[in-house]
Write a protein that binds this DNA or RNA. Sequence first.
DNA 1: GTCTATAAGTTGATAGAC
DNA 2: GTCTATCAACTTATAGAC
Lengths: 202, 202
Amino acid sequence: MTDAGRRRGRPSTGVREAVLAATEAILGESGVARLSTKEIARRAGVAESSIFYHFGDRLGLLQAVVALHLPRFKDVADGLVPGEGGLRANLVALLDGLVAFYARVAPILAAVQADAELRARFADRGAGEVIGPRRGVAPIAAYLAGERELGRVRADLDVEAAAMVLLAVAHQRAVLGRLSDGPAPGGTGDAVDVLLAGLAAG
Amino acid sequence: MTDAGRRRGRPSTGVREAVLAATEAILGESGVARLSTKEIARRAGVAESSIFYHFGDRLGLLQAVVALHLPRFKDVADGLVPGEGGLRANLVALLDGLVAFYARVAPILAAVQADAELRARFADRGAGEVIGPRRGVAPIAAYLAGERELGRVRADLDVEAAAMVLLAVAHQRAVLGRLSDGPAPGGTGDAVDVLLAGLAAG
DNA sequence: GTCTATAAGTTGATAGAC
DNA sequence: GTCTATCAACTTATAGAC
């Protein structure tokens, strides 16, 4: 991006993008288990060899797909302003947004879990970032800290731990929805109510 | 099992068991992505064709592995007696046990997510059972209901929803541990503290 | 950058001897 | 029940024309 949005070298003809889109689509429908470069090429309407030209090898392609989704994580808490709106309504909206996000990312997350080679390539720079810590926790914890300062959340709350729990519930609901082809039992509201009031007796 | 623990037909020579164990081992180390009947046979020290004799096809084998793990789910809340021990200590122990359980089951769960054919075979009889509802929720909800009757848990708690949250946290921690080769950030205690006290201000 | 053609290896699965 | 031998189809990846 040195020159007004212009890339270096020859202009792309969209093959790279088509391959990425096709890979993601297959990943969502069928998973990594039977994912082949042949099927990707067929679906993207390109030559199989183009995949290797752009991504080096099969793993490079998968790596590119994962990398494509990492940055999107930071947007999950967007539009949440401490003090604005009801706390419960905010949390329900947040959780619904997180579930939708995880529904898109779950296939990729499953791919990383199910492919040791892919997992190995993401060993150092965290692959775990996609599911929880760092990237996902920070913005949610920041929102909760804001609510804590306003006194709408208990003063001694561990906001990072609370954010982790929210992410856990969202991920669970997304995976369940994928496995059983329908929303998970109970609503997001039920989970939020448990989280708000806690388990312990008054 | 009609005759004093004796099975019908010829006695097994352990090939079936060896194949199942090898499959599970590979699944844990490498995932479904590159799982082949050839490698399974090599690792189990049997002929590849024996796999097809016992399980019909590759999918039948995977199905058998999944089925092997479903029943184990009911033991997760064993040894938990409402009123005995501290509530917090009980929940921490439960959560630790759940994490350990999910750590074993996670590779299989990932396999179901990552293999559309396998997912399809478990569409009707719930595959989602492994991660949350029905099997997993019931015993935990029962324990919480017991504590609720004793007044150690708030009277209006939705015990099913609370059990789901506990399973979600356990699953998250297991997956994170797998992805980053180490325990997830924060302890199980932190999560339990959030769950006990809740988010809302006094 | 994208294609066609092709190579070498691996895949799931079957047949048939013991 | 378990093995060896074998197969056609598919796998990832490369070479070279355009």
